[in-house]
Nucleic acid binder design. Structure first.
Length: 276
DNA sequence: ATTGGGACCTGCTCGC
DNA sequence: TGCGAGCAGGTCCCAA
C-alpha cells in the first residue's frame, strides 16, 4: 500500500528526525526481513550514524556514515515508526534500530513482507536503481517521456503505470485515481492512447501524486499506512474512485465499478472512462 | 513479449 | 456460534 506519496511522507519524517542519529543496537525477530542476513546487516550498521535519507520509487534509502546504505521496502503493510525506547512495543514490530539518545526506529509489518536490505556501496545501489523507470515529479519525467513509455507496450495502461521498471513509485491507488482524472479506461491498451489522452494522464498523475504528498499519504480501509509518528494519512478522504465500488462518481454521478486487472482491484467510472 | 498464476503472510469478512 | 474459504496487495518467480 505505501506508494510514492506515502514513502515520500515517511522519507520527509526521517529526514527531519533521524538524520544525525547513531545506531547502537538492532533487535529483530524475523531474520528474513534483514538481507542478505541479520549478521551482515548488524555488523554493517552498529556504531554508524544516519547521514542522509532519500526515496527512490517505493524504496527508502538510509545513508550511513561508513558508506553503507540501508534500502527499506515496506511492501504492502510495512510501517516505520520512530518511538521512545520506553514506549510499549508496537503491533507487528519485527526489526528495531536503537539510537544512542533513547529513541528507536521500528519496522512493523503484519505480513512480514517488508525488508531492510544492506547495500554496501554506490555501485550496488546503482544496480538496484537501474531497474526503476523514471521518477515522477522530477524533470526526467516529462509528458514526452510518458508517451514514449506508453507507446512501447500494448498491455493495459493501468498495468504499465504500475510497472516499476517503466515508471517508479506508482501503485494501485494512484494508478486508479490518475486514470479516473484522465478519463481513461484502465484496460485501454497502452500503445493505443491518443496524444491527448497521454497529456491528460501526465497531468493527472502529477495531480494525484502531489495531492497524495500534500495530504500526508493515504491510509486505506486496511489501516496499514502510518507516518513515522504513527499518524494516518488523509488522502483517502479525497479518493475519487479507489475503494468506492457502487458509490457515485464525483464527476458525473454514475456508479463506480470494480473489476480485476492483473489480479488487482481496479475502480473506475464506466461513464467518465469509456472503453475505447 | 505478454499474461496468468502462485508464493510470501496474516487478519478480516463472508457464507453456511 | 463456529469454522473454513476467500480476499487484499507489492514484488518476484515460474510457466504457458
Amino acid at each position: 500500500m505505501p506508494e510514492l506519496p506515502e514513502v515520500e511522507t515517511i522519507k520527509r519524517g526521517l529526514e527531519e528526525k533521524v538524520v544525525g542519529r547513531k545506531i547502537v543496537d538492532v533487535v529483530y525477530d524475523v531474520p528474513k526481513m534483514l538481507l542478505p542476513n541479520p549478521k551482515t546487516v548488524l555488523s554493517a550498521v552498529l556504531g554508524t550514524k544516519i547521514v542522509k535519507v532519500e526515496r527512490k520509487a517505493k524504496l527508502l534509502l538510509l545513508y550511513l556514515s561508513n558508506g553503507n546504505i540501508l534500502a527499506i521496502h515496506l511492501r504492502l503493510m510495512g510501517r516505520l515508526l520512530l518511538r521512545s525506547q520506553r514506549t510499549p512495543a508496537d503491533d507487528w514490530q519485527h526489526v528495531v534500530f536503537k539510537f544512542d539518545d533513547g529513541e528507536e526506529l521500528r519496522l512493523c509489518d503484519l505480513r512480514k513482507f517488508a525488508y531492510v536490505r544492506l547495500v554496501v556501496n554506490r555501485s550496488e545501489l546503482e544496480t538496484i536503481l537501474s531497474e526503476f523507470g523514471p521518477e515522477p515529479l522530477t524533470s526526467e519525467f516529462t509528458e514526452e517521456k510518458l508517451g514514449e513509455i506508453l507507446r512501447k507496450s500494448n498491455r493495459p495502461v493501468k498495468i504499465v503505470l504500475m510497472d516499476q521498471k517503466k515508471i517508479a513509485g506508482v501503485g494501485n491507488i494512484y494508478a486508479n485515481e490518475a486514470l479516473f482524472w484522465a478519463k481513461i479506461h484502465p484496460e485501454t491498451k497502452s500503445n493505443r492512447l491518443s496524444d491527448e489522452q497521454v497529456a491528460r494522464l501526465y497531468k493527472a498523475l502529477n495531480k494525484v501524486l502531489r495531492e497524495g504528498i500534500k495530504y500526508g499519504g493515504a491510509t486505506g480501509s486496511d489501516q496499514a499506512y502510518r507516518n513515522i509518528n504513527g499518524e494516518m494519512g488523509r488522502f483517502q478522504e479525497h479518493f475519487a474512485v479507489y475503494g468506492r465500488e457502487g458509490e457515485k462518481c464525483p464527476r458525473c454521478g454514475g456508479k463506480i465499478e470494480r473489476i480485476k486487472l492483473g489480479g488487482r482491484g481496479t475502480y473506475f467510472c464506466p461513464r467518465c472512462q469509456p472503453k475505447s
